[in-house]
Design a binder for these strands. Structure first.
Lengths: 117, 117
DNA sequence: ACAAGCGTATACTAGTTAGTATACACTACC
DNA sequence: GGTAGTGTATACTAACTAGTATACGCTTGT
């Protein structure tokens, strides 16, 4: 399985093919962090960054932030907030959906979205 | 709103009315932590304990651990694991359900549980 | 009088998080 | 051959987490 660092390095290098501003240094500068730190993150020398920094990185690399946060071992704090407001209810729901296949969960999402609620 | 500390103190004192073993000292001993620490937690002098310790406390006090974790500002790590495996899917679902009333979410839980899936 | 149990004040800490700051070695350009 | 840009090695750190350990003062039963 690909690690967080490997993923973002691959993604950055890929973007760089068509845009030379995607160097470690320039990306780090745009994000407001040290290039040496980004380098360490990409090589997995340090653990993935904070939620905020991971978000900036997702934005910079044009990837979904929930996905990148997940690779960083985190869950977006706004989702946590939703759960924390009704922990038992959401706890039940999520555990119920744990083993469900993607298409079943997706059906549920659509049902809620367009449904008559 | 009631804080974490106030809640567990109230709950412990309530249990103590019918069972004197619910003193700070004895509960702490059963949990394997220092009484002084439990005391500080109850008075809100320190931030709520770790997930593991919060779980022990929930067990000791006979309350739902998801609920108590929520009061501690946390989301159970097993729920986080479920989300982290399919972050985009669950992200969508949870944000969709954010504003839904309890009964609607509950209906969904039941639908999944007994549904023809 | 004193031991047992109570809550708490006080002092301390190992480990982790999330980075910064600087300097070094290499390549490419003009 | 200098300079501009690259990735990275190295050294350091402030703040936070999640507690422990000990001692103090109070009450209560014998």
């Amino acid at each position: 399985m690909q690690t967080f660092g490997q993923f973002i390095r691959a993604r950055r290098e890929s973007l760089r093919k068509t845009d030379p501003t995607y160097s470690v240094r320039q990306v780090a500068k745009r994000m407001g962090i040290q290039p040496s730190y980004l380098s360490k993150v990409e090589r997995g020398e340090v653990s993935p960054p904070s939620e905020e920094t991971t978000r900036k990185l997702a934005h910079e690399l044009g990837v979904d932030s929930d996905m990148l946060l997940a690779m960083a071992g985190k869950v977006s704090s706004d989702l946590q907030d939703v759960i924390r407001k009704r922990p038992v209810l959401f706890g039940e729901l999520i555990r119920e959906l744990k083993e469900m296949p993607d298409h079943a969960v997706l059906r549920l999402v659509r049902e809620v979205r367009d449904g008559e609620w």
